[in-house]
């Protein structure tokens, strides 16, 4: 059964006020429901700008964004509805956390959706437990570590029960423990059917995790495809200053040495390679 297209961008152009060059120059992307999509490209390639178009914070100068087949309704009510469905976890938690109180911070999104206070309270407590925030929920925001702030910023969005979650380089500044935590949560969310878009610089991770990879450069989409398609295209990878996934290189070397017989598909992850051996 064909998965429906949940988000689509058709020929989107966008320029920031005062900028000469357009940040998005004719972006065409279709995202299937439930998919895990990795966005890759240099800083400034337009990933974050594109994300902000998906929830209506930026309105394209030309082209359109569709959610579940319908064009985005830019009225106040329409935007509110959209933002309840498409949530963004920002790269720097200090740019997202506005309250000194963890509970107040998390309650913001769900109260904005019009949920009555007593229900909201229950939801907030539920998400605090789920995201393992309970040990530090009474501490002021500034006293939290980077990883803990990241947990809160994800909880901020989760409490709104979105259908699509966008994470802008979520593990960029985290220690190994929190990187694993965040990646595990992302997997859990994905298994619940939530569509996940993630900006990352880690080709190995993207290859292993994503159903689809979108490569961006200078506000344009270079290519959108499965990890197999993208990672086999060395030229395109070079254009975005990316290298082949480590797993591919090891696989090739093992095939050269005759330890492995080359099959049709490349192993996406370390585990798959180990399985092959």
């Amino acid at each position: 059964m064909m998965s429906e297209i949940i988000i689509e961008a058709r020929n989107v152009f966008f320029t920031y006020d005062g900028d000469e060059k357009a940040s998005l120059q004719g972006v065409n992307i279709a995202i299937k429901k439930g998919n895990k999509v990795a966005f890759m490209g240099a800083n400034g390639s337009g990933k974050s700008t594109f994300f902000l178009c998906l929830n209506g914070v930026h309105k394209p100068d030309a082209g359109s964004i569709f959610y579940r087949g319908k064009p985005v309704d830019y009225s106040k009510a329409g935007l509110k509805k959209l933002r309840g469905r498409v949530g963004i976890v920002f790269q720097d938690p200090d740019n997202q956390l506005f309250s000194a109180s963890v509970t107040q911070e998390i309650s913001f999104g769900i109260l904005n959706m019009g949920v009555p206070e007593n229900e909201a309270k229950v939801e907030v407590e539920r998400v605090i437990e789920r995201m393992e925030i309970t040990p530090f929920k009474d501490r002021p925001t500034y006293a939290l570590s980077g990883g803990q702030k990241k947990q809160v910023s994800i909880a901020d969005i989760l409490v709104m029960h979105p259908e699509v979650i966008i994470l802008d380089e979520p593990t960029g500044a985290l220690d190994p423990k929190h990187t694993k935590l965040v990646n595990d949560w992302i997997d859990r969310l994905s298994s619940e059917g939530i569509t996940i878009l993630q900006a990352t610089h880690d080709i190995d991770y993207a290859c292993a995790w994503a159903d689809e990879i979108v490569l961006m450069k200078d506000g344009k989409v270079l290519k959108q495809g499965t990890p197999q398609e993208i990672c086999a295209d060395k030229e395109i990878l070079a254009l975005t200053n990316l290298e082949e996934p480590t797993v591919y290189r090891i696989y090739r070397k093992l095939c050269e040495k005759g330890i492995l017989k080359p099959e049709g598909t490349m192993p996406e992850s370390l585990q798959k390679l180990i399985d092959m051996l």
Binding site: V57, R83, F90, N95, F98, F108, N112, M160
Partner: peptide, 8 residues
């Protein structure tokens, strides 16, 4: 942007 994204 972050506040707006959560329905402010």
């Amino acid at each position: 942007d972050a506040l707006e994204s959560r329905g402010y």
